[in-house]
Design a protein around this nucleic acid. Structure first.
Lengths: 137, 137
DNA sequence: GTGTTTGCAAAGTGTTTGCAATTTA
DNA sequence: TAAATTGCAAACACTTTGCAAACAC
């Protein structure tokens, strides 16, 4: 019996993405993927890592977030000019964004339906549809 | 006969917004509002103003864009972490965004229908719904 | 060993701010 | 002339980059 067991799932994710499971990547992946759906900025993740006693630089956090996004493990959400959020839920869904608190959260279920979507302009393809519901108070 | 006539509409907009029609504001307002629906960043507007021979600082362009937005003359659209677009069309509508070229444009007509929108979380109000259709190629 | 990854510090980008000088009403 | 506006330069927040040292395979 080893302590490798709990890491297995996260390790596999990294392996499948052809990313070496370095100490930093593994630790960041566990913070990201072992706690359900999360919406984090680079700063958030860096802070959490440091609080968990993981020595990792902010540059590496950025690198890792982009590598994970490129590998399809994360989705980048733009709601705020000035910073990026990364969402651990990569399936098709939409978001509530509270501009006052900066909290971004999933809209539950497949609730929203976007209808009568026009065709993309000639020669273009629709890559993604983002719906941001901005909430207040 | 004066040359004030063509400015009338734009002047009125500034007056209604209780913004003094200074040389800079008037010139920027004309670039923004005398050419149909536009989607510009601060840099775009600054460049256009300089090209048109209007001496205005970038700081003033930012101030002006925010004042116009606060007055309801513009709408700020966030599609790209790192820069803001300002839309001269303030009615309810949505956008195509080409991430490769950085071009943002209105989706024509009232085409898109967003349906089954969930209620805002307890105590919260929906302030706005933004739909961004990201296109490619 | 060899190629990948990391961390640092520096540079970059877009935006905001403080304040003296200028302009508007 | 009193209050609002402007422009500059410095400060900011977030992100990216270059490169030597450390690490994974």
């Amino acid at each position: 019996m080893t302590h490798i067991r709990p890491y297995t799932q996260v390790l596999d994710r990294l392996r499948n993405a052809a990313l070496r499971p370095t100490r930093q990547r593994l630790a960041l992946a566990r913070i990201l993927f072992e706690h359900g759906d999360r919406h984090l900025t680079a700063e958030h993740l860096h802070t959490e890592a440091l609080q968990a006693g993981i020595r990792v630089s902010l540059a590496t956090v950025y690198n890792t977030l982009h590598q994970f996004t490129a590998a399809g493990l994360l989705r980048e959400i733009v709601v705020d000019a000035g910073r990026s959020y990364f969402d651990t839920n990569t399936s098709v869904h939409h978001h509530f964004f509270n501009e006052r608190t900066g909290v971004l959260e999933d809209i539950p279920g497949g609730d929203i339906v976007v209808d009568r979507l026009p065709a993309a302009p000639p020669g273009m393809t629709i890559k993604r549809v983002d719906v941001i519901v901005r909430i207040d108070r």
